[in-house]
Design a protein around this nucleic acid. Structure first.
Lengths: 261, 261
DNA sequence: AGCTATGGTTCAAATAATGAACCTTAGGCG
DNA sequence: CGCCTAAGGTTCATTATTTGAACCATAGCT
């Protein structure tokens, strides 16, 4: 693996910790030598991607990503555009709705609107969504090219619950169903007692970039409700796709004021 | 220079372009070989830090920084806390107010509130603030340890206008003044016709992390107004410091709900 | 059909990354 | 107090990765 990859993996690991970490811990978590981890941290710190607390000497994510994110969101305002739709869907479905985005080979949760009900599903921003075990993962994969499906299924399919589908052949069947139906259903794939449906947000060329998902307690969710949720997820995902790729043009060039390049 | 440093510099360069860039341009701008630039881009893309447009084959900043930024801002809500103060200052001063943050060895603009007046100073989010030639830079340096001041002054001090102070000895004098006065004044240091004042936002230990600056057209700004702006900048910067380090505790641990680590 | 500019790839040579062992400092404790 | 431990941090010979000139592939243009 390249040095850059290892350093970025370190950054990713650091970002998933819920508090600041010391050098030794970071090295252990990333399976790096202490000296190597330190050199990476120093280098990342030089560029503002990590910060070291001067007192505790522990490390945390720096402010450089904030600057990059502002630039990214200014040109590709995915969150800004999607959030109102996600909010509306959370209200109309009265269940927890979350939005995920494909980035760095994985699907991560980037926004969550909680159900207004007392008994509801909790999803954390930043959490990873395994392709084979979540509605979002299935909805995403189902609309990917066959080669990517096979690449995802070639990996070890981890078991999370008794209901997790870990047989690649059965996952393929679920993907086929999803592709024809337009949305996916995950029946306790990641957490017991939770049923989810999801639909992909796609580029004009059809490539998925993320998913809209509704997660509900299995106990109060009927078969017809699932079908309704699926239809709602599809409608919301399509609305986001349209708004995102319609008004603004992410694929083409941004009309630029400045002439001299 | 380390590979990681070069890759992050590439990312920085890419972020400062106002549109997507091709491989050849990126390689040229970063002074890298085309093959090297390509390997970096592929590696960065794997981790979501850049994206390649499938049609145009051009590269842009990816979505990974957005995720990192959300995590950073959730724990260190600098923007969230500072923006209301910046807004208030823009209203009360009726001039453009901007907020900068030190990151990766440089001071970058992270937020701007425009003056409500027709004739006003425009500052771009993301723009860099040279230490010797801007009010923000001076205010930041003035409260840094002597070693960092000398390190900054040892570099070549670029001339931007006829009024830019490029003599290290004169900059030192300006820094001394700033330290005693509490705020800095830049008289056309970066742009002709612009006068600015700035004050640092500091950690409880006194270390600057960024600056609040007011920028006004020289033509309508009296000596007394400058003093008033300076005092306002100091008050605002201190208020931000207090709120940021008071209520939330960035240095210590975040009280965590989750128990299992 | 040929030209040229750009994206992308290869592989021997050059360089940077690696990690075991080491030093240093800060607490903990008999 | 002085010993012990654990953590952060550093060194330098060994090792593996990075590098870039030259190459190929493709698309748009004349």
């Amino acid at each position: 693996m390249s040095t850059i990859g290892k350093a970025l993996a370190l950054l990713d690991t650091l970002s998933r910790l819920d508090k600041e970490a010391g050098l030794t811990d970071i090295a252990r978590l990333c399976a790096l030598d202490k000296a190597t981890a330190r050199r990476f941290l120093v280098e990342l710190e030089k560029h503002g991607f990590v910060e070291q607390d001067p007192d505790s000497r522990r490390y945390r994510i720096g402010s450089a990503p904030v600057r990059l994110a502002r630039i990214r969101e200014a040109r590709f305002p995915f969150l800004r555009i999607a959030i109102p739709f996600i909010k509306a869907l959370a209200e109309s479905s009265t269940e927890t709705v979350h939005l995920s985005e494909f980035s760095g080979g994985r699907l991560s949760t980037i926004h969550v609107e909680d159900s207004p009900r007392a008994h509801r599903i909790i999803v954390d921003v930043g959490s990873l969504l395994p392709f084979h075990a979540t509605a979002s993962g299935l909805a995403f994969l189902a609309f990917c090219p066959q080669t990517e499906i096979e690449a995802a299924l070639a990996k070890n399919l981890e078991r999370f619950t008794d209901s997790t589908v870990t047989d690649p052949q059965l996952v393929r069947a679920a993907l086929d169903e999803t592709a024809t139906r337009g949305f996916s259903i995950s029946h306790q794939g990641l957490e017991t007692g939770v049923i989810s449906t999801a639909a992909p947000v796609r580029t004009p060329s059809g490539r998925p970039i993320g998913c809209v998902a509704i997660a509900a307690p299995l106990s109060r969710t009927t078969k017809t409700a699932i079908q309704e949720f699926g239809a709602l997820a599809v409608a919301t995902a399509n609305a986001i796709s349209e708004k995102y790729y319609g008004s603004e043009r992410p694929t083409g060039t941004i009309p630029d004021i400045r002439r001299r390049d």
